[in-house]
Design a protein around this nucleic acid. Structure first.
Lengths: 184, 184
DNA sequence: GTCTATAAAAAGATAGAC
DNA sequence: GTCTATCTTTTTATAGAC
């Protein structure tokens, strides 16, 4: 089995797409199977339950996050710029996975909540390595989360006012890193 | 009917609580009715359908947002500080309503998505009145969204690293307002 | 591996008694 | 206004043919 079950990957991709584009309520087994072009029975051969589908999303997110953390640490532009820039990216595989995770978490899937917490913890560690100051690292985390949240929801002020201005935000990064705080 | 239907308010409150604490999937008619201490039939007398419940959340959020926007405009500390400070507040009625809205939006309820978009648009307007510069207003919106997102999900780095440091973030506000951008 | 058919459970909603 | 009983639809999951 050099290339294991192309159908399995199609099902998982369909599930993630539905989560991202239409929300958790729409991501039923039936809708997922249909979008993947298989039957419900076919889907359930690869994923024995809905929980198994969610677990697969979590597992897949972990693979992509590890790559991201590695890239972030090695980024020539610095981890802060890398983090802010990529937080605004849409439709990368990592972004889709994070969005899917969030939809699951907000629907009540505990394991997804925990994975998101773990991811945030690790991003924060890498940022701290570069900026040293806790309050500045906090600020960067907040900006990143804001970018992620807004870029993922078209139709808000973001689309009308912000989109395209990311470069200006990135120009502020060196100034952000020099803000003075009262940290001990 | 000086005090119309205490039960109705209890049902709506139960629904909002379930959305916030356990996610949209858990907020079924049955669970909502049980938490409110009424039967399913009793619930359906006040809210004819699930959609009616969601609509009531949206309507109620509008009332509280109008008050918030007014307070924001009149805040002695300035709208930026007010916005950042209140974005980190948890368990205020407005915060609960915004969280409930978000859960609905991410589950696929269109009207909730639209209401959130409208709210963001109005916050942005008020911030612009104070800071003038688009990029700075963007930055503040992003920080606020980040604070809101993180403060609402216990168990992340926020709880372990940030909580209690809000005052330090607020001390950065005057510096943020003086950042230099290349806006025309 | 994938399908169809079917079962089992959960969720949303109606009807009518009180 | 609130309840119980019931119905319908949707969703999840199983069984077994191909």
């Amino acid at each position: 089995m050099a290339r294991p079950a192309a159908a399995r990957a199609k099902v998982l991709d369909a599930y993630i797409s539905l989560l991202c584009e239409e929300g958790e309520r729409a991501a039923t087994l039936e809708a997922t199977a249909t979008r993947a072009g298989v039957s419900k029975g076919g889907l359930l051969y690869h994923f024995a339950s809905k929980e198994a589908l969610a677990d697969a999303v979590i597992k897949m997110s972990e693979d992509f996050v590890r790559i991201d953390l590695n890239d972030m640490r090695g980024a020539a532009e610095g981890s802060v710029s890398y983090f802010i820039r990529t937080s605004a990216e849409v439709n990368t595989e990592l972004d889709r996975l994070l969005t899917a995770l969030q939809r699951l978490a907000y629907s009540g899937v505990e394991a997804a909540t925990e994975q998101l917490a773990s991811i945030n913890e690790r991003w924060f560690e890498v940022l701290m390595e570069e900026v040293g100051d806790k309050s500045i690292a906090h600020l960067v985390m907040l900006v990143g989360e804001g970018l992620y949240a807004y870029s993922g929801t078209p139709g808000t002020w973001y689309e009308r006012h912000f989109e395209g201005n990311l470069s200006q935000l990135l120009e502020l990064v060196p100034q952000l890193k020099k803000l003075k705080t009262n940290n001990e």
